[in-house]
Structure formats: structure tokens, C-alpha cells
Design a protein around this nucleic acid. Sequence first.
DNA 1: TAGAAGTATC
Length: 583
Amino acid sequence: MIITSSSTSVAANSTIILLDKCTTLSQVRQIHSYMIKTNLVTTHSLSVAKLISGFSESSNPSQAVMLYAHMLFCVHDLKGIEFSVPSVIKACGRSRAFREAHQILAHVLKTRLWYDPFVTNSVVRMWLELGEIELARKVFDRMPVRDLISWNSLITGYLRDVFMTMKVKDVVTWTTMISACVLNHRPRKGLDLFREMLRIGIRPDAPSIVSVLSAIADLGFVEEGKWIHTYISANKIDRSGSSFIGSALVNMYAKCGQIEHAYHVFRSISHLKNIGDWNSMISGFAIHGLGHEAIKLFLEMEMAELKPDDITFLGLLSACNHGGLTNEGQFYFQTMQVKYNMVPKIQHYGCIIDLLGRAGHLQEALRITYHMPLEPDVLIWKAILSASMKHNKVETARIAALRAIELDPEDSSCYVLLSNMYAKVGMWDEVGKVRTMMKKRGVRKIPGCSSIFVNGKVHEFLIGKAMDLGDNENVHCMIEEMVSKLKLEGYEPDLNQVLLDIEEDDEKESQLALHSEKMALAFGLMNIPHGIPIHIVKNLRICCDCHSFMQMVSKIYKRRIVVRDQNRFHHFENGSCSCNDHW
DNA sequence: TAGAAGTATC
């Protein structure tokens, strides 16, 4: 557990680490009063809230409950302690503290906290975590405000409950759960379930393998993927023409950054390749920015007289988009309509609009947006927004952002992009307004998270924070070293990338240096031997500063770096990136 | 007895 603020002193960090190891209330009390005395933590709510929230996610969540109780009884003038309630509720669930769970619910019911969906949703999740489906339902039925999160929690709870109560489960039961996890963006849970299924002796079949490969592809864990690949061969899992295994393997290797391996698997498919096999390979080339390779494969497919479908064209257009092949993209957008008589779907429009926008043809992109036979969706407006930002069209960006927000008010990325644009041109008042709008609507920015596989283990990083505490301090030192080394070579931090309205450039710079992908990179440099590429997976799009940072590191440290961001792969080598700054 | 659960997507 650690405080996330970059300005936190090393002393405070060490003390908090110490706190994390306490097992009794008296120990927590002792150290906490020491922190107050030495001014490491004031009795102000913010630092206590951080402590409690940190504890609630730590390996010993009961400490959050203890500290909260301690604060309530011993520090009477503590303002804002109610902000810690959701963390305490979470901690009750995680530490299986039934008695405290009932107590805190009684407290919530008596106060205005009952009208805060953030709090009541936490209560629902707590009961579900504790296996109390009926109690969760009772709270759900009675809570005054229900939002999407409330419904999602309940569905997940019911699903898990049904699954847990089934005494006899077969491979289909497990596969249903695994694919539900993948669909709900919980690939790690899906992989865990697959392992559990193997452990209890259920033999996987083709669909279960396909599901878990999809989870692994999302995670980018190539070692796990190789293990499944070996398992398929050793156990002669069905690889007939009707199977999806070929395409799932190609997809897995491509999304794990091993495009050559994906291609090798594609070529070695022994049965007559089905459309899915081709589509996976074309889409694989697309995320690696290999536009020409995708086109070549498409032509080969045509030669083989295989009829492309809408996903083939989406892959192809996306490949042209990521490869910067503007003319080719427009040509194939026509081809699908004229030669193949296909009606483009919203996704095809999205792709071609994005392609035109990136290439600087913003007017043409807008023309299509306003004249297409379908209603433009949020992704199209986001494409227009990105293009406008890239070419400094503030007014178009503003219109596009507002349309996107109107269509999906809960999508934080639209607000972030808009705020990003205002920040870029220094309109800090507008940045503030966007932030207020987000706050009012309860929209929260998705935190950037990067992961890296080192020595058989996945290490995750959030901004300024290694999930594995042991890594944290070394990584911070390494980043400092890297920044100074790069500055000597001309690196200038791109402070426009910092979305917060921070006045001081120093503070902006330290925020920037702590981006999760830089943390993962520093960790990789320290722990991955020379000659072996450093693979990083990021949940969001890589920012411009991190992109140029990686380019420079690849040159100065003579390392190959492969980053998979939300959209595509970036292969950094000798100072340049495979995306040619086109992403 | 077969079937269910499964891939590729801006």
C-alpha cells in the first residue's frame, strides 16, 4: 500500500509501508499517532482517506476498518471522514468482516450517505463479496438512486452465485463463464477460471481453448499463449476446418506482439483456411501497422476465390489506416461497395473517417460524417475530435467532443480529449469547466495501467505506483536516471500532455515522468537482459511524450521496445517507431 | 444422440 501523490516524501512512504505490516489495532494507532506528530500525515481527511483507501486494497484490508474505527472514536474533529466510507465498506467485504458490515450499513441507513449511489453501490458489492445475495438484493431494491454500476454489480453477483452453487459443472459451464469474463473485459479472471478448470481435472475442448486464447490475447501474456499452443498439439485438440482454433492462435500471437509467429501459425494451418483464419491474420497485420502485408494477403485471398466479408474489409481498412495508406484505404472502401456489393457498416465509416482525419483531410472526413446514411456514433465523433486536435482545429474539436459526450455521457475519454485539447492551447479555464462537468456527472478518468512480463511474473504499474511494492523505489530512481540521460541528448518533456491544471512546470514534469508505461519501461530496462525486447501492454493510448521518450530510450539504451496500446502496436528501435508517428 | 460453450471489429 502506498500513497500515490508524487510529492509524498520517502519517509512517509516507508512509514506507510510499515503501517501496512501492522496486524493489531494498537500497532496501527501507534504508528498513526507517530505520523501525526511528525507531520507525515495530518489529521486532515485527505491523508486519512488515502490511508484507508490504500488499506482497503492491501493484502490486509481489515486495517482499513480498524483505522476508520480509530479515527471515529479518537479524533473527534475530523472533517470529511465520510469520504472514506466506500473504502471501509469495500474493506469489510474483502476482509469478511460481517459484524462491521452490518454496523456500517446501519450507519449508512441513518445518514445522508444512503442517498449517495457511490456508497450504496459499495454496499451491494460488499454483500455480494460476502456471498449474501439476498442482502445485496434487499439493498438494491431499496436504494434511492440506482445507476448502471448498481445493475452491473447485481448481474455479476447473480452469475457468480449460480456458478458457485452448481455442484456438477462440465466443460460447457466453465467455457460459458470464461467467455463471459472475456466479454466483460475481465480476461485475467477468465484465465484463472481456465486454470481452475484444469486443476479439478476437466479436459478442455476446442471452444474452451478458443475462449482462453481470447483472454490471453487481451492480456498479452505470450508465455501463457505458447503453453496453450503446446497443449493443443500435445492433446490433439480439434483443429479441423470448422474450428476457430487457427484464427484464435493467430489472433493471440498477433496481440501478444509476435506477428511473425502469428504468420507462421497462419501458414501452417493444415486444413483449408476458413474466412476467420484470413480475417485474424489481416487484422493482426493491421494492429502492427503492416498495411502492405495486409493488402498482399487480401489479394491472395481474392486469388483463392474466397469471398471477403465485412470483417475482412474492416481489417483491411484498419490496416490502411494504421499503415498511413490513405489512397489505398479509400480505394478499398470503394471496392467493398462497388466490386463486392457490400453496404458499409458504421465501423467501416468509422475507419475511413479516422483514416481521412489522420491524413489531414478533415473536410472530407466531416463531409462523410454529415452525409453518411447512418447516424454517426461516438467513435466517429472521437475520430473527428482526434483529427481536429492533431491539426489544431479548436472549434471543430469542441463540436465533435460535445457530440461525443452527448452520445455517451459516461465515456470519460471524450471529456479527457476535450480537456486535453484545451490544455494544449493553454485554455485552462475551459479545462476547469470540463473537469467540473465530469465531477458533476460522476464521470471518472480511467487510470492508465501498464503491464510487463518479467521472470515468469506479470508486473503492473499505475501512474507513479508499482502494484508490487518491492518494485516501486527502484523504478522511481531508474526513471530519474533515464530522464537526466535523455535530457542530455535533447529530450524535452512535453508538458502539454499533463491534463491537470498544475501551475508549476516541475510538478507537471514529475507527473509526466510517472506515466505507467514509463514505469514499466524502467522496470523492464532493469530486469530484462540486453538483446531481449521489452514488451509492454497499456490499457489506454500511449501519450505523445511517452512515445518520444520510448523512441529515445530505444536509441540511447540500444533496446528494442514493443508497446501495445489500446489501438495498436508500436515497435521502437534505434530511435524510431514502426508507426511512423501515425497512431 | 446431439447439443451447448468458441475466433477475426473503428
